[in-house]
Nucleic acid binder design. Sequence first.
DNA 1: AGCCTGATTTGATAATTATCAAATACTATT
DNA 2: AATAGTATTTGATAATTATCAAATCAGGCT
Lengths: 187, 187
Amino acid sequence: MESLKTALARISALSPDTEAAFLSAWKSWTLPKDHPVLREHTVSDYIYFIEKGAARIFYTKNGKTITEWLALDQQFFLSITSFFQRSPSHLGIHTLEPAELRGIHYQDFMSLADRYHEVERLLRKMITDSLILSQVRMDAIQFETAQQRYDRLMATQPEIIQRVPLTYIASFLGMTLETLSRIRSGK
Amino acid sequence: MESLKTALARISALSPDTEAAFLSAWKSWTLPKDHPVLREHTVSDYIYFIEKGAARIFYTKNGKTITEWLALDQQFFLSITSFFQRSPSHLGIHTLEPAELRGIHYQDFMSLADRYHEVERLLRKMITDSLILSQVRMDAIQFETAQQRYDRLMATQPEIIQRVPLTYIASFLGMTLETLSRIRSGK
DNA sequence: AGCCTGATTTGATAATTATCAAATACTATT
DNA sequence: AATAGTATTTGATAATTATCAAATCAGGCT
């Protein structure tokens, strides 16, 4: 419980009673390794926070499974388009390690955002952070070579390489498994 | 004035007095063709709305000028990272056609968002829309061929081809001018 | 220890797109 | 209408990365 609270406090301060109301809306799950969190083509109702463990957000394109995001301890994740547009997501999510998850339902988040200006502000800041991340990532994908994208990952999240199978990392970085392997072997 | 109001109403409803307060914070500019809106490496203080005309958001990478976004009539645009992080932007912005611009300053937007819950909600929805767009675009860049990206642009914003020089469109689509030219000629 | 299964590496080749270099077309202005 | 300057097209070649195929490696299980 402590770490979700800390993570939220880092984004935006809440007054004690608002914080209590908001935190109590979050549910908890303990999931084993390789367990589904969200089935593909369903509406994603939750924003998740992974207290501990690893999860993979993926989808299928032309018969291939693409890893769209990898979430490790202390990160928020969700299917953006599905959660906000309330439409079935092409995304699936499953755990890669045993995981402690927290999640807040769309309806609960929205009614709290309606009731508390501070929660609305928190939501706005969460989305802003996510948008900034998305911009940086887009730039990387569009204008960096495969080598540069790998180097960037090593610089920012080296632990990901230890904990996640290379196949997933490859597609997360927008390259094939073979290309990633060659980059890692130093050509 | 009417169209900014309409565009905002489409995003989120405001009560009459909140709307009046909010709209009055927007400034107006009339700019000629090929006129700078934001100089590179400065802090971007405004969210812009282009009533009429065309603008180009760009930056320089390895000595090349990359078009990051093209905004035509009735669109909002801004340097996301600079505006929200209050840091100098690598982005520059200039007009491609004579343009009627509206803009709201960071400080004004934020203090209105602080004062009015409804403005905070509007801001949240604007950012959400932008995030969804960003996700869709990222997916296109990462997993579609040059041909598919061109086809998508033709399907969604065909008028852009008529109004914007191909060099800019090419880099907006993440390909070289030559590649775009060959795609257009049907190989 | 040996085996099985999945993960990763390596090799050969193909596809896509970029780069460099002209040639041609277009536009605005005289 | 001629010209200058820019925009676009075309051609030849190179670079990057994907694809397909096979070999090797690693960890869990009997």
